[in-house]
Amino acid sequence: MNATPTVTVIGDGQLARMMHTEAIELGVNLRLLAGARDSSAGQVIADVVLGDYRNLDDLRKVAEGVVTFDHEHVPTEHLHALIDDGIAVHPGPEALVNAQDKLVMREKLQEIGAPVPPFAGIQSVADADAFWDSVDGEVCLKATRGGYDGHGVWFPKSKEELEGLVEKLLGENVPLMGEQKVPFVRELSALVARRPSGEVRPWRVVESVQRDGICVEAIAPAPGMDAGLADYCQSLAVKIADELGVTGVLAVELFEYLDEDGMPQVAVNELAMRPHNTGHWTQDGCVTSQFEQHLRAVQDWPLGDVDQTAPVTVMANVLGGDEDPELPMAQRVREVMERYPQVKVHLYGKTYRAGRKIGHVNVSGQSVVKTREIARSAAHFLVTAQWL
């Protein structure tokens, strides 16, 4: 009898939790390195080792089968040590560093010819001043490591404000880069999965709707998108996955903007090497979800079909509101089910906190307008216990 394959996930958030659902169906044992037993993934996965992903001994203690990630923050030197121990790590550290360090990522993307805005490393106030002048003050200042959901990003309104920010942040040992602000008209996301042996499959390009730096909605496929540009975005995601040697799911977040002739163009914003918020729609709107595909890919199994199962699927995040309603979440879910039987609810087992991602809903349909309306209404009720 064949042994049950094991995939070890480093990180205990909702991405690991949703991987577990697919692992059950695939007959894969999911092993988890968790910071706490009551974490989102720790609540539902049986094979849990408590530890710190920054500690090599803890990583060695949990590593079994194939190692993959719920986040990108594991030190790459630890991953090299695991590989030296004979452990398969996907994505590998050479790829993962491009999702950990924005300046490394920008330099690599520029090297392979991917579209990126003008950028520069900022190691002094003088560097910041020079970059400000080079882009006529259109500066986005970024922490090269650790930023997410709008954190670690600043938009100074004057050179003096930029100088003050840079002096303060460098004094706090925050590594910095500057890039030219992109006058984008919307944000897009191109997801792709790649196996170690090279097979690659991209999903349809989606529109990502952001509020305060957090994705609140994903619409698949991106409405009204030029077919040629959509094909280019998919090809770009495949190229980046191949050139960087990514294994598993890769999300390429993009800015869509208009050039001087009014034609739509794209520039790469961020990379994520794991299942991604903008891919949650695939759970209910695609033949193969990003979570199943990630598990297939990291084990070098054949990849699944990525065709959509409906003309439109919309994902709406459930973010903790300013106050937590008295109506229990279970009752809120029931009322959503009663009003909208087509809504698929996904909760993360997280306690309420204002702005926190505590779940999402997926809705598939024929019309973008109607499907978005239902998704927004359902998510709003789960947050507030009130109908729009």
Rank of each mutant, 00 (worst) to 15 (best):
V182C: 02
N173I: 13
D127T: 02
F131G: 02
A130F: 02
E179P: 05
G113C: 07
C140P: 04
P183A: 13
Q180L: 11
D136A: 09
A190M: 08
R145P: 12
V174T: 13
F131V: 08
V185T: 13
P115A: 03
L176I: 07
L162I: 07
G152Y: 05
R186T: 03
E163F: 04
W132S: 02
S197G: 13
V139Y: 09
P115D: 05
R194E: 04
A190W: 04
L176Y: 02
D129Q: 14
P156V: 01
V139P: 00
G171Q: 03
P156S: 10
K181P: 11
A128S: 03
A126Y: 10
P196H: 11
E160T: 14
F184A: 00
K168S: 15
S124E: 05
L165E: 01
K159E: 15
Q123S: 14
G121F: 09
R195L: 11
F184V: 00
E138T: 15
A120R: 11
P183V: 07
G146L: 05
V116T: 10
I122T: 01
Q123E: 15
S124L: 00
M177R: 11
A130S: 06
S124I: 01
I122S: 07
G198S: 12
M177E: 12
A120N: 09
V192H: 08
V139K: 05
A114I: 03
V125A: 15
V166G: 09
V174A: 09
G150Y: 01
S124R: 03
G171P: 05
L165F: 06
S134A: 14
D133G: 08
W154M: 11
H151P: 11
V192E: 07
L169G: 05
D133H: 14
G137T: 09
M177P: 09
S158E: 04
V116P: 00
F131M: 07
